[in-house]
Nucleic acid binder design. Structure first.
Lengths: 194, 194
DNA sequence: CCCTTATTGTATCATTCAGTAAAAAAGGAG
DNA sequence: CTCCTTTTTTACTGAATGATACAATAAGGG
């Protein structure tokens, strides 16, 4: 067993609460009192458990991608490129319009444009989004070699198109778009996919 | 003529500088020193000319829509629905990747998710984006009655699709996407348009 | 030339920000 | 029990935030 006074809160539960706040208010819009209130802990506990605001946010990114947004990695395992896209978009729409979550996509809206102090966070989000698009690109390349996609297809452009629509859906959801509307959008967007 | 000491700066030029800062750093990421430095004026001049940070931002919205982003309203006057979409997307791509501008779209990234203090600004941006989409919808309805679009088309869904792609392009541009890549995306997205 | 009016510069306001030092509290080990 | 380690609590730090008070300044109107 661990020695010392036992931690009185569940660290993953607290991380989930922090993720929700960052998701709703963005990195810069979230203050430390916002976080400690939502997490139900006080400031030194947050610092000892997570480092600082920056480190907590980075842990929240991982938590998001491995948990609430796991549909992305799952979708890559679909048998056909088209099925990948269908699952990716429908999963995204479910995620960004789920009443249990803040509206919109954490990866898109939590640090899209920000001041100098948060620029490293913004860059990190750019890198993460780029990474996801690269995985999608690899999946499409595989589909091309498998003959699943036409041999003349450009996997890079297709991946960029698919993620562009995903981002657009995220922005729509951050506004007033409904799940039905976004499903119609995705249905339409799928017409452009080979 | 106006009495009193004459203003030493050009109010529209200062507003353009403020717009650029808000565009690059977002509403919350922009501090008053950021603004006064960029505008070349001191704080009381800013307050007397524009009100406060909130009011200055709202004036920047109008400046953006009537100036740098005027391609949107212009595109509505194209003769066919398809030409509207082509001009809208190509104009957006030009705007969000223009090296003279901050990367990305002001309407998308300056207040997508933020804290309680800026929530009114966020809502205002949602309203403005919704308004633009409504104008697009009206244009497509006209195209349907004109026989330019198939009579079975749903103008609302088409407008939502077109704006979704625009928003996605904006997010891509806030990352590392190049103009050529986005043009390819738009070309692909156009395949889904009737 | 004085008076009115508006802008500018300086200096400051109270508040909030992220981050910490130090003591109290809660367990396990001896 | 007493020591030892870790967490919690309270209180606090210096810096940055948005916003103003006030006096100096620069023009036009009479």
């Amino acid at each position: 067993m661990s020695v010392g006074r036992p931690r009185e809160f569940d660290i993953n539960k607290a991380l989930d609460q922090a993720l929700d706040v960052f998701w709703r208010k963005g990195y810069e819009g979230t203050s430390l009192p916002d976080l400690t209130d939502a997490m139900g802990i006080n400031r030194p506990s947050l610092y000892s458990a997570f480092g600082n605001k920056d480190a907590l946010f980075r842990k929240a990114i991982d938590r998001y991608l491995e948990g609430r947004a796991c549909h992305f990695h799952e979708s890559l395992e679909e048998p056909t490129a088209r099925a990948v896209v269908e699952k990716l978009w429908s999963g995204s729409i479910e995620l960004v319009t789920n009443p249990r979550n803040p509206r919109g996509c954490f990866m898109v809206q939590s640090a899209l444009a920000c001041g100098d102090a948060a620029d490293a966070i913004r860059k990190e989000m750019v890198k993460r989004r780029t990474k996801c698009e690269a995985l999608l690109c690899e999946r499409f390349e595989r589909a091309i070699t498998d003959g699943d996609l036409p041999s003349g297809s450009n996997a890079g452009y297709l991946a960029k198109y698919v993620s562009t629509v995903s981002y657009g859906i995220a922005v729509q959801a951050a506004g007033n778009a409904t799940r039905d509307q976004l499903n119609q959008v995705a249905k339409l967007a799928l017409l452009a996919f080979p």
